[in-house]
Design a protein around this nucleic acid. Sequence first.
DNA 1: AAATTGTTTTTTCACGATAAAAGACATTAC
DNA 2: GTAATGTCTTTTATCGTGAAAAAACAATTT
Lengths: 304, 304
Amino acid sequence: MSKSNNVYKEAYNRALRLVEETRRLPSEPELGALLGVSRTTVRAILARMEETGLILWNKRDKTVLRAPQHRDFFPDEETDTLSQIIERNFMRRLLAGGAEAGMQINELEMAREIGVGTTSLREFLIRFSRFGLIEKRRNSHWVLKGFTRAFALELTEIREMFELRSAAAFCRLPPGNPAWAELDGLEVEHRELEAAIAERFTAFSELDERFHRLVHRASHNRFIVDFYDVIAMIFHYHYQWNKVGERQRNTVALSEHLAYIAALKSRDPARVEAACRKHLESARQTLLASIPDCGQAEADNSAK
Amino acid sequence: MSKSNNVYKEAYNRALRLVEETRRLPSEPELGALLGVSRTTVRAILARMEETGLILWNKRDKTVLRAPQHRDFFPDEETDTLSQIIERNFMRRLLAGGAEAGMQINELEMAREIGVGTTSLREFLIRFSRFGLIEKRRNSHWVLKGFTRAFALELTEIREMFELRSAAAFCRLPPGNPAWAELDGLEVEHRELEAAIAERFTAFSELDERFHRLVHRASHNRFIVDFYDVIAMIFHYHYQWNKVGERQRNTVALSEHLAYIAALKSRDPARVEAACRKHLESARQTLLASIPDCGQAEADNSAK
DNA sequence: AAATTGTTTTTTCACGATAAAAGACATTAC
DNA sequence: GTAATGTCTTTTATCGTGAAAAAACAATTT
């Protein structure tokens, strides 16, 4: 099957939004920059838009003829990257299904089950291995380490080290640094969400990620910044399968964020540390509370 | 060409060492365990040994007929893993050649130059990306970030955080923990090397790695333990192309290690921290001294 | 002349295929 | 009856291939 054209389809859907808003589309290179794809893909999109009667395309002239209907869009399933498909499948097995530690992963079988080639699955597993949940035996299978209490503790330990350091670095940023403006923006978004917490309390996790990434970036350390990928991945999937008490959790986290932001703006290192510690502590508790295998931790940890 | 039989060749060479030392070889499963390969490979090895007249093989009986000659061994080039070949090639370009930051990596071209398939190279790059030296543009090329002063500073920053924490954890290990015995063993090896520093001063880096890995393991944190891979990789290649002042460096490091070991054995946290800090500081200086682009650091760091 | 469009070349992504290596099962030897 | 050997099956490592997407180059247009 070689390669799916999801890049084209996904960009096409986004291009439809542009069609909704304008009478005539900009030049090909401009569209490419706007959609984040190459001109080759832009031209494929324009060609189809002409075919379906959405636009009239003649060289520089790209006039919108009609508003896009619902059926003009490609279905969501077709716009996903292969690695996104694999990732979702894999995480579902890992978190939802009964994936015990020590279980081994069969590339061929798993690729067949998900319906992808072995190469793609292999590449996913290699990329995924940095999250510390799987390990490769040379010339042999992968071993699942399991989403255990020990894992959560190790993850949060690093997170706390990194975030405390990043927060301290944030305080030291000169006043002119754009990060301060970003922080102000995030504060506003927090207040807006606080006011509307009843309706859109699920929007929090996206805001949460942006806030923590901003703090981590202040460290100016690629290893710290990159490590947030691990945290984001875990929290993302974790919350997707664990909705109990979500609203309560988010309300608490939101107010902790606001205190944390206020502390950062005060530039008082002691206050920042306290606010950061408090928030991380409750994040840790939330994560731990959701892991079934209690008592397992000591065993895992002392097994060297 | 599908797959090279380097596993077989490498295991064969190691099996020759056993032939040198024994009159008759053990059972197939035992040999497999000894060489770390499957019985399939063991049997292939035995088959060849019989063919070349090294042994007489009849079911359980595997009698050694003659001592292996030099020409019985497979040449070293043939025993390397593909990923080792790729790694060496890549690191040579990165450290020795003029690999400026921002330069882009072409999978196809590089694969051709090294003489491997694109899949293998891709997988290597994905694995390598966690070292923070390259970055992928989606649906496009990889970008080289360069082995810059900024990189070295970011790397050592994390290293120091992790090692200080691990060393502190080491102090708290109960007296019965096998790590203490391992530490004693390493101390002996250090003393032996100290006595013979004149002859085998290049053997230090291997000892260095084992020592630091032992310390890191005390953290009981997979992210800390895994991070040492990054450090080991950098130091390994770095020293391979930078032999100036090696002996002096190693002599200093050796005595610092001994002080560090003594501190750990004293279990005095303050003393451990001091010894650890001192050693890490000189390791950092050594690394920084070897990077050509001075003054670059500020520019890199403040570029957000 | 600079930017845009038209055309061609290259590169990435993903697959199936194949030999090496591992693993499973059946048989024999002690 | 346990542990070895003999045989067969499955899985991994690697490549070549082909379509999607990017990038480079050439020809227009304003």
